[in-house]
């Protein structure tokens, strides 16, 4: 009897997943100078029965979660404490035509400064910050397109994209993480299409101060000057 009930529950869950369509899930995260971040996410729902819709979230401790746009009567709350990286939408009515669910939240610290203990080798130079983001589709409903746009603080630029997973498939045009400009700041966009249950994507970007050190300029000009002086005999006219 118990197994019958479990089977029925699984069937119902699969039917719900099959009936639900998620054409896109896009998050724009804007980082501030103090390292905090403000995110605005838009999930396009193509089709969904009324009731509970659970979506994964790629951030472990979102704060000030707020539903910005949704069909009337929709409620949003974070998943249970031990599954905090999920969102629970309670839909009052079924969705039969594409509708955007828009919500915002705050992330306390999006940029990590790797601290090293005394005597320990440093992994990053002083002034560098690391942004890491990972997203796993923990739900049965596939997501046609997942995109995260991370807008850097004004005074930082990308030193390098340190991680971009998964590797591109043959039919994909790269790169997985694209650097670009977004409202006057540099941004990194992670894109992953056809995210099925269990599929994961991640990126890590190292950020450095926009202003380069003048050491290179001083050293370069000095070296060039010294060379021109010490090697002037190369072009000196030889006495016949």
């Amino acid at each position: 009897m118990r197994s019958l009930r479990l089977g029925a529950a699984l069937l119902a869950a699969s039917a719900l997943a099959l009936a639900t369509e998620l054409p896109s899930y896009q998050v724009r995260l804007t980082a501030a100078r103090d390292g905090s971040g403000q995110a605005m996410a838009t999930v396009l729902v193509g089709h969904c029965p009324a009731g509970l819709l659970v979506l994964p979230l790629g951030f472990s401790a979102p704060e000030d979660l707020k539903l910005e746009e949704a069909p009337p009567g929709t409620r949003l709350e974070l998943g249970a404490r031990d599954t905090v990286s999920s969102l629970r939408f309670q839909l009052q009515a079924p969705i039969e035509a594409p509708v955007a669910l828009r919500f915002s939240f705050r992330v306390k610290q999006v940029l990590q400064a790797l601290k090293t203990a005394p005597g320990e080798k440093g992994a990053l130079p002083a002034g560098s910050r690391l942004f890491r983001h990972g997203f796993v589709n923990t739900q049965e409903t596939p997501i046609s397109l997942y995109r995260l746009e991370f807008q850097f603080p004004e005074d930082l630029i990308a030193q390098a994209v340190r991680e971009q997973l998964p590797k591109l498939e043959k039919q994909e045009t790269g790169p997985r993480v694209l650097l670009s400009a977004l409202e006057g700041r540099q941004a990194a966009t992670l894109t992953y299409a056809n995210v099925h249950q269990g599929d994961a994507t991640s990126m890590a970007v190292e950020l450095v101060p926009r202003q380069r050190s003048l050491v290179w300029l001083i050293a370069g000009v000095t070296l060039a000057g010294l060379y021109l002086f010490h090697f002037r005999d190369l072009v000196a006219k030889k006495a016949s």
Partner: peptide
């Protein structure tokens, strides 16, 4: 060296990393 410095200190395009 001058070419190196010129490229290094040029304002980077948004699509390129440092």
């Amino acid at each position: 060296i001058l070419l190196f410095l010129a490229i290094l200190y040029l304002p980077a395009g948004a699509g390129a990393s440092a």
